[in-house]
């Protein structure tokens, strides 16, 4: 097994042995979505209109909540130092960590979304589009998030700073993803939105690991 696969396996292993760090953001996701019907209105006409937006906003905040842990523990115990001075490719090592993060937050969110979608009375085609947008865009959330997480590594109480850094970069994803779902509900064409989400994914995939590795090196100086 090469070192990149080992890094991925290691992160998954640590997460499985410390499940609260993975479950907290997911619980936040489920709880925050399920509060909306209680607070606004349980009527189908209102709920179906705002369902996609609610799920997407909750998803983003849940990912944001989970990002703090991406580099924090490895920074504290010194593993990050060893990764930076390793002769292996640092962006690829970081990509392995981001992949683990996506498997632990993005995938569960995608799997939970049909349940929450039907909770908000979305019909099956809309739920399918919702899952498609999540599948296309949650990897971007992890990738872009890693840039913020690497910039704030080592700074105490940096949760708010992370939100300020990252949320503006998340806005395009939020706009295209939620508009894709609501347009699909009216039977309109959504390929444009999906292409935009795919473009953001490709752009973040090729740039985020490099930017994060530079930011990490600066943070560790």
């Amino acid at each position: 097994m090469n070192i990149y696969a080992k890094t991925l396996k290691r992160d998954l292993q640590i997460a499985i042995r410390n499940p609260s760090s993975v479950l907290n953001p997911l619980l936040f996701f489920v709880i925050s979505v399920s509060l909306f019907p209680l607070a606004i209105s349980p009527e189908a006409t209102t709920l179906t209109q705002i369902a996609a937006g609610i799920i997407w906003v909750a998803c983003m905040l849940a990912v944001l909540l989970s990002l703090n842990a991406l580099f924090h523990y490895d920074f504290e115990n010194g593993v990050l130092e060893q990764m930076v001075i390793s002769h292996h490719n640092l962006p690829l090592l970081i990509l392995a960590k981001i992949t683990a993060h996506w498997l632990l937050t993005g995938i569960p969110i995608i799997l939970l979304s049909p349940i929450l979608g039907s909770f908000l009375l979305l019909d099956t085609p809309a739920i399918q589009i919702l899952m498609l947008t999540l599948l296309l865009a949650t990897p971007s959330l992890s990738l872009i998030g890693s840039i913020g997480a690497s910039l704030i590594v080592g700074i105490k109480n940096s949760g708010m700073l992370l939100a300020l850094l990252i949320l503006p970069l998340y806005i395009p994803i939020l706009i295209f993803a939620s508009s894709a779902v609501s347009q699909a509900q009216f039977g309109l064409e959504i390929t444009g939105q999906l292409y935009f989400l795919a473009t953001i994914l490709v752009l973040s995939l090729i740039s985020a690991p490099f930017v994060s590795s530079i930011a990490l090196k600066i943070s560790l100086e």
């Binding site: 070192i3 080992k6 640590i14 504290e76 115990n77 292996h88």
Partner: peptide
């Protein structure tokens, strides 16, 4: 970098992994 092993003030060990897993990862980096 391949020829260097740096031992700093920090332990470079994860509490959630056992000794062998930690060492396999750590030496794998080098």
């Amino acid at each position: 970098q391949q020829e260097v092993f740096y031992l700093g003030h920090l332990s470079a060990l994860s509490g959630q992994l056992n000794c062998l897993e930690n060492l396999e990862f750590l030496t794998g980096l080098n």
